[in-house]
Design a protein around this nucleic acid. Structure first.
Length: 264
DNA sequence: ATGCCTAACACCGTTAGA
C-alpha cells in the first residue's frame, strides 16, 4: 500500500496538475492539504472517476484537508479532539482529518496541516505550539490502539539542519524554532517513526521550494512534509519516494508529493 | 530588501502562505 501526502496549494487552482499526478501514480491512499475550499467545492467527482473514495474537511479560502482512498473510509474524524468545529471557542481552522482505510489490513491515516506559525512572538506562533501539544495528546491516544497508523501531512517543521539548504537563513523562522523542533521530536519520542528518515534519510530530501527568489532552480528547499508511523506501520515500511520532479511541472504547488510504501 | 511568487476574495488592494 502506498500512502501519499501532498500540500496542493488550492485543489481547484491545481486540479489538472493534481489529477495528472494521480492518474500516473494511483497511490492507494492520499492526504491532501491546503485545499482552500468548502467541502461542497471540492472536486470529489474527478477523484471518484479515478477510483477514489473521498472525505473532506474544508473551509472557505484557507487551510482544508482531504483524504482519498481506493477502499472505503471508515470511522472518519474531522478536527483534532479539543476542537469544536465550527465553534466560537474551539478551533475553526480545518487542519485535521482522520479515517480508517478499510481492507484486510486496515490502516488508520490522518491528513495533517500543521499551522505555519510565522511570525514568531505572535499569537500565530503560540497557536502553532498549542496545536502541536494537542496533536501530541491525540497521538498518544491513537498509539495506545497499537494498530497501523500514519500521521501524514504538511507539518511546517524543519526537523534538523540537514533538512534545509541553509540553516542560518531559517533561524528566525517559526518552522525552525527550537520549540518547534522540540515539539516534533516529542512526537517521535512517543514512538512515531519519521518514514523518510527510516527508509532513506539522505540529506537534501526537500519537499518544499518557495515560489520566490528562484528557490526551485537554486534548490533552496526545505523538508517539511512528513509521514509519522506507529510501530505497527513502521514495521512494514518498504520505502519512501519524494516526487521532486513535480515541482518543475506547469502550475506547480510549492510542495511536492511524498509517498511511503508499506507492505500491508 | 518582512520583498522577490501564488491564490482567494473582493476589488482594482489585502491576507496568508513558509
Amino acid at each position: 500500500m502506498r500512502i501519499a501526502t501532498w500540500n496542493v496549494n488550492s485543489i481547484n487552482a491545481r486540479l489538472e496538475t493534481v489529477l495528472g499526478w494521480f492518474s500516473e501514480e494511483q497511490p492507494e491512499v492520499a492526504c491532501l492539504q491546503e485545499i482552500k475550499c468548502l467541502d461542497e467545492k471540492f472536486p470529489a467527482e474527478a477523484f471518484e472517476r479515478l477510483g477514489y473514495n473521498v472525505a473532506v474537511h474544508g473551509q472557505k479560502t484557507y487551510n482544508g484537508v482531504a483524504l482519498l482512498s481506493k477502499t472505503p473510509l471508515e470511522d472518519v474524524r474531522r478536527g483534532l479532539p479539543g476542537e469544536d468545529f465550527p465553534g466560537e471557542e474551539g478551533d475553526d481552522q480545518a487542519r485535521y482529518l482522520e479515517a480508517v482505510i478499510s481492507g484486510p489490513r486496515p490502516v488508520r491515516v490522518a491528513a495533517i496541516y500543521l499551522p505555519n506559525g510565522n511570525p514568531i512572538g505572535t499569537d500565530k506562533f503560540a497557536y502553532k505550539l498549542r496545536w502541536m501539544e494537542r496533536l501530541n495528546a491525540h497521538a498518544q491516544t491513537l498509539l495506545a490502539l497499537e494498530e497501523p497508523l500514519a500521521l501524514a501531512g504538511d507539518y511546517n517543521v524543519i526537523p534538523e539542519p540537514r533538512d534545509v539548504y541553509d540553516p542560518a537563513a531559517w533561524t528566525g523562522d517559526a518552522l525552525f524554532q527550537p520549540k518547534t523542533r522540540s515539539a516534533f521530536r516529542a512526537l517521535e519520542w512517543l514512538g512515531l517513526t519519521d518514514a523518510y528518515m527510516a527508509a532513506d534519510g539522505a540529506p537534501g530530501g526537500y519537499t518544499f521550494w518557495d515560489y520566490q527568489a528562484g528557490a526551485w532552480p537554486r534548490n533552496n528547499g526545505i523538508r517539511i512534509d512528513h509521514l509519522l508511523l506507529s510501530p505497527q506501520a513502521a514495521d512494514h515500511l518498504a520505502g519512501v519516494v519524494i516526487h521532486r520532479d513535480v515541482r518543475g511541472r506547469d502550475k506547480p504547488s510549492d510542495h511536492v508529493p511524498v509517498v511511503a510504501e508499506l507492505n500491508l
